[in-house]
Amino acid sequence: MGALTEIVAPVQGIGELRLLLPLMQRIAEDGRRIVWVSPPFEPYAPALVQAGVEIGRMLVLTVTNRRQDLGWALELLMRHSDTGLVLAWPQALPPPVWRRLQLAAAEGHSLGVMFSRNVSDGTMAALRLSIEAWEGGLDLRILKARGGFGGARIRLAL
């Protein structure tokens, strides 16, 4: 806990949320908050309930002025001790903001998951994954990880 994760997915809807469902379940059970920051679509509550995630502690935050407010809101959320997981879809964040968020996550013991579309170098995430779809599951590649798992490939059936 207390770090940033970046998930690189070329398209939305291939299973990036199903990958996180067990994590969400655990965090919600711990009584910590899960915040969706400007999701690309509506997170659909009945499906989350089906998956066994407690939605009472979930919050959806809409940021209209992304350039001005996104970094501020993310930092505020991650620094808070009640927040367990922050999901965000930032299109581009400058490196200083990444660094600040990394610090905030470490301080608040919260997990930030950032979804991006393409593999761009220079992000400060502690863990970087890239996912691709295959028939019946996900093809997961670890781009970077603390502890030297970098480069591993895993096929997950979801």
């Binding site: 997170p43 509550a45 009945p46 989350l48 309930v49 939605i55 979930m58 919050l59 959806v60 935050l61 809409t62 940021v63 209209t64 407010d69 501020w72 809101a73 505020l76 959320l77």
Partner: peptide
């Protein structure tokens, strides 16, 4: 604080 800066409609709770 979030509501003050982002507007009162910015926050939503998920419900079934």
């Amino acid at each position: 604080r979030l509501r003050l800066r982002l507007g009162p409609q910015a926050l939503r709770q998920l419900e079934v």
